[in-house]
Computed example of a mutant assay.
Amino acid sequence: MGGSLWPWLDASRPFLGMVLAVTALATNMIISKMAMSTGTSFFILSLYSNALATLIVFPCAFFFQRSKRLPMTFRVLWRIFLLAIFGYLAEIGSYAGINYSSPTLSTAMLNLVPAFTYILAVIFRMEVVNWGRFSTISKSIGTVVSIAGASVVTFYKGPAILNKPLTSGSTMQLLLSSQQNWVMGGILLAGASFLTASWCILQASILKMYPAEMMIVAFYCLFVTIQSAAVSLIAERDITAWRIEANMGFVAIFYSAIINIAFRLYVTAWCLWRTGPLFVALFKPLTIVIAVVIGVIFFKDTLYLGSIAGAIVLIIGFYMVMWGKAKEGEMNKGTESSSNTSPLLQDKPAEV
């Protein structure tokens, strides 16, 4: 019993890591929404958070990954720079989408990431398509269902079910529901989801070339800081926007830098290296459950019928994709086992 415990713990580490990662992401969405509602610019929030994360991750990378300190070539660096562009645009799109809508909508739209990741994986031949298999049919239909669910969440708000917004408005309600534009927020968040899926695919390919997760995260944060500084100089010309005066702004910057960027990106990179992009993307729908619980119970966020209906459709699509992926994994294991234990079958052509 004791001997089988450690292999089980080792196998469960990617699962536990992704649960922690999506929890950090969901919490960051809510904290960022509150900071932006008190006047903090999302451009400045991104710049300061990534700059602080760079100062944290670089020393840690050189100290903890000395054995993995491979020579950093231009071939790897330009890919990390491109990864930073995808990540920064996804981050800004996510912040802007949250600013227009709510953390609940933002986490619901994250359910699109597995669908987009599957489409990109098929395009880049990282996923096999065989219409004669139920697994391929399930993944393809699940992708379409996920996109349909995201459309429901975006274009149908519906009546408020919990924490109905007040006409006069309490302080917390004003913090969480100001400047709402549901459709614009949904479009921005859908774009951020596509960029996140592209980010997962690209980072998985970089990790194959340069398997040092923390060093990749360190250079990634540095490049995002440079890019966000350039954009912020253009977008925020008012000097007052560069000053963080609200306490919630400082909380959002430190939480985003330490937990959402440094910790979450390292854990995500570690899981990407060991499991691949689709496994990581499949955990994004869990974010909506965590964010709804935190937002509705602790921050009095408004829960709308459209969010629930669309989220249910999204989750159905997500599990269809996940079921198809699991079935393919079982078939691949069976094929490997047959080839190892049945030498007489090796002369036969493999099934596609």
Rank of each mutant, 00 (worst) to 15 (best):
Y255S: 09
S168T: 12
D238A: 14
Y220P: 00
V128E: 09
V128D: 06
F155Q: 04
F254R: 09
P211N: 01
S193C: 06
E245Q: 15
Q179H: 15
L233A: 15
A235R: 12
T225C: 06
V251S: 12
G186W: 03
T196M: 10
G249T: 10
V145F: 02
M214W: 02
F124T: 12
G142F: 00
G186P: 02
Q180K: 14
V145I: 14
K164F: 07
V217N: 05
R243Q: 15
L162Y: 07
V122G: 01
G191H: 03
I226G: 01
G158W: 03
S177Q: 13
S135M: 02
L166Y: 08
Y255T: 09
A150Q: 05
I216N: 09
T196D: 07
I234H: 13
V129I: 12
C221R: 00
I226F: 10
L202A: 08
R125D: 10
I234A: 14
L162V: 13
A241W: 11
S177G: 11
Y255I: 10
V145D: 03
G191M: 06
M248C: 12
Y220V: 00
S151T: 14
M126W: 02
G186M: 01
S232Y: 07
T154F: 06
S170R: 07
S138I: 01
A204H: 11
L233E: 11
A197H: 04
M184Y: 12
Q227S: 05
V122I: 09
W131F: 13
R243F: 15
I206T: 07
M214I: 05
D238R: 14
A150R: 04
S228A: 13
G191R: 02
G142A: 05
A192H: 04
S151A: 15
R243I: 15
V122K: 00
A160Y: 09
A212W: 01
I253H: 09
S193E: 02
T143M: 06
S198T: 11
M215A: 10
S135T: 04
T136W: 00
G249A: 11
E213S: 09
L188V: 02
W199R: 14
I147Q: 02
A121S: 13
I226W: 00
G149N: 04
